[in-house]
Amino acid sequence: MIKMKNVTMAYDGVNPALDEINLQVDRGEFVFLVGPSGSGKSTLIKLLIRELVPTKGEIFIAGHDVVHMKTKKVHLLRRNVGCVFQDFKLLPNKTAYENVAFALEVIGKPEHAIKVQAPEVLKLVGLNGKFDRYPGELSGGEQQRVSLARAFVNRPPLLLADEPTGNLDPNISLEIMSLLDRINKTGTTVLMATHDREMVNNVRKRVVALEHGKLIRDQARGVYGYED
């Protein structure tokens, strides 16, 4: 699903934020991307959705060359990659339902399809009865659920999560984690960047560790493993 070959990303052209990364993630895998702040987790995710173009190296997602992709094709890539972030990125002036519907609307889904898909996915993430709440009226965990619903509504084969539990309490984090796990069980590949030591150690999935832009460890059923 994801294939990175010798990927180097240097924002200023000299000091690499990511240095010679080689990574392969297969379809249906769940991968933790761990590392302290500034180790390059977010950069790696941005590279995968072509928000950034690497200085060097090759990136393939589902067989598509992301690095040499034409700019006008990028939106098609993003439709197949769901994204969740620490700060949720919800529109404050739209309700939970509208936030999800908006994502479908802007990719040109017809109205009748939106009316079926949006409620369905909101129920899936456990927001039944809160469709008409605005983000400001929802708790952090609930907002992240809306965000997850939006990322998953289009059933993308790949879901990227950049510290999705970074702003949440441990028990709420676990709920989000189990949601991600459920999504993964439907066959969606999940790559989750986090520095939540406890969660990584409890769940025991594949762990890819970054430090100073280098991939220092790739371990099936791994642990967080930093002394911080």
Binding site: K89, L91, F102, V106
Partner: peptide
């Protein structure tokens, strides 16, 4: 800009934005 960023994120085409 927030809306535009989200539109880009979920894969709205250039011209749609």
């Amino acid at each position: 800009r927030k809306e535009v960023a989200i539109m880009r994120l979920v894969g709205a085409s250039k011209w749609f934005v």
